Simulated assay, not measured.
Amino acid sequence: MRELVFATNNQHKTVEVRQLLEGQYKILNLGDIGCITDIPETGHTFAENAALKTSYVHLNYQMDCFADDSGLEVEALNNQPGIYSARYAGTGGDMANLQLVLKNMEGQANRKACFRTVVSLVQNNENYLFEGVINGTLREESAGVKGFGYDPIFQPDGYAITFAEMSMQEKNEISHRAQAMNKLIAFLKSLQV
């Protein structure tokens, strides 16, 4: 089975992606290849940040790899936290980030938001990008204990529950990351024909 490096240390993302690519590729993460560098995300877009990670791994480890950058974009907050989603509240982590979004949304009637993922792939010295977006609304209070990040306050359009109330399988069928990964998977399969 071919190996692909997923340029992340996030175990939640690794588990999600391994399920999506199960039986097709052996997915390694940064820890699996011994990469302990905190790859800087200095880009101004999700695409730039994802490409920075794949370029670093490809240059330093000579392995085909992919990386994603994703985040929550809230219409009433001028699409913030956006690329700063993981560090919106500084170093406080997921709960602090979620609480800051809720605080900044107090009194806002417009609750529209989306999750966006851009996946960068480096394979055979070529670069490719794949994007996924899911629209929804922000709840005023957290609901559910599954998932991570902003999942407890994000209710995707067409659903009465948050991402954090869905099973991983349900979330993987519709999420922004699943959409981008499905495009990546379709591309990888087309290369094997």
Rank of each mutant, 00 (worst) to 15 (best):
L21P: 02
I33C: 13
N79V: 00
N172V: 07
F187T: 03
F148I: 14
K112Q: 12
Y159K: 10
G31V: 00
N79S: 08
M1H: 09
F187P: 04
V145W: 04
G31C: 05
F154Q: 02
I161Q: 15
Q99E: 15
M168V: 13
N127V: 00
Q169W: 01
F115S: 01
F148K: 09
G90P: 05
E140P: 01
L100Q: 15
Y128A: 03
A86T: 08
H176N: 13
E173D: 14
Y159N: 08
L28C: 06
I153N: 11
K146C: 13
N104I: 14
E73F: 13
N78C: 05
G132C: 04
K53R: 15
I27Y: 02
N60G: 07
Q19K: 11
R139E: 13
V145L: 09
E3L: 06
D151F: 10
A50F: 00
F163C: 13
G132M: 02
A76G: 07
P40Y: 07
A76Q: 07
R87Q: 12
G132T: 05
C114L: 07
A113Q: 11
K146R: 07
F66Y: 15
I36Q: 08
N9S: 15
G43M: 02
A109N: 06
F154G: 01
N182W: 01
L129C: 01
A89V: 14
P156R: 06
E75H: 11
G31P: 00
V5N: 10
H58Y: 14
G90K: 02
E165F: 10
G43V: 03
M95F: 06
V119L: 12
I134T: 03
Q11Y: 06
N97K: 08
G23A: 07
K103M: 12
G136M: 04
